Simulated scan of single mutants.
Amino acid sequence: MDIRRVVTGHDAAGKSVFVSDDAVRPARPTLMPGSQFHQLWGGDTAPQFPDDGSMPQWHSYFPPVGGFRFAMLTLPPSAGTGASEAPDIEKGLAEIEELLPGMLGYMDPSDPGMHTTDTIDFEVVLEGTVVLELDDGAEVTLRAGDTVVQNGTRHRWKNPGDVPARMAVFICGASHANVTR
């Protein structure tokens, strides 16, 4: 999917201006075939205005308390997403860390895909079907137009369909007594 990001800001006189209009290329980790992560915007602190419209500094996939992330995700169908040849796991994990810094630290290695973050996530399903599974096996099926407010719960995402599912996500860092960085 081609994603366009238009950014506004302020000029030296405080007037509203367009500062960029660019295509955003997705991260496509080898160990996650068919997945796409469009990291659109983020910051590790609360924004202050007026600003010049430049991307704030941020360092990890999930934000710290007071930070935020805006992204689009593409989840491939759960069936038939295996790689055609055996991947180099060590190289693939290093690639994920480079493309999506810190994400793997939140994953439960004993239960693939299951993770808990110290964030509040606002998700909108744009296309396809996704299943949100919680740690006790409870599931809800979501379709285009459905939304989720994810309050730091242990969960995983699955795509039971036969086409990619796309979601828009806004993530806010939050204090979570059960998650440590």
Rank of each mutant, 00 (worst) to 15 (best):
M1H: 13
D2L: 15
I3M: 15
R4I: 05
G9L: 02
H10P: 01
H10K: 02
G14P: 11
G14N: 12
G14E: 11
G14C: 12
F18C: 00
V19K: 06
D21M: 05
D21G: 03
D21Y: 06
D22V: 11
D22R: 10
A23G: 02
A23K: 11
R25Y: 07
R25M: 12
A27V: 09
A27K: 15
T30R: 08
L31C: 03
P33F: 08
G34Y: 05
G34P: 04
S35G: 05
S35T: 09
S35D: 05
F37E: 13
Q39Y: 02
Q39E: 14
Q39G: 09
W41H: 09
G42M: 03
A46I: 01
P47C: 07
P47Q: 07
F49L: 13
F49S: 05
F49M: 07
G53P: 10
M55K: 08
M55N: 03
P56Q: 07
Q57I: 06
W58I: 02
H59P: 01
S60L: 13
F62S: 02
P64K: 11
P64Q: 12
V65N: 08
G66K: 07
G66Y: 10
F70K: 03
F70W: 14
F70T: 12
A71Q: 14
L73A: 07
G80T: 07
G80H: 11
T81C: 14
G82E: 15
S84H: 11
D88E: 04
I89F: 09
E90W: 01
K91Q: 15
A94P: 01
A94E: 09
I96P: 00
E98C: 02
L99R: 06
L100F: 12
G102V: 10
G102P: 13
G102M: 11
M103T: 00
M103E: 02
M103I: 13
L104Q: 07
G105L: 12
G105T: 12
G105C: 12
D111A: 13
D111G: 00
D111S: 13
G113L: 08
T116W: 03
T116R: 15
D121S: 03
F122S: 05
E123H: 08
E123D: 09
L126V: 14
V131H: 06
L132Y: 11
L134Y: 01
L134E: 04
D136S: 10
V140W: 09
V140C: 13
G145E: 06
T147W: 05
V148T: 14
N151P: 04
N151T: 10
G152R: 02
G152S: 07
T153M: 07
H155T: 03
R156W: 05
W157A: 03
K158T: 15
P164R: 10
V169C: 01
V169A: 03
F170Q: 04
C172W: 01
C172E: 05
H176C: 02
H176M: 00
N178H: 15
V179W: 10
T180M: 09
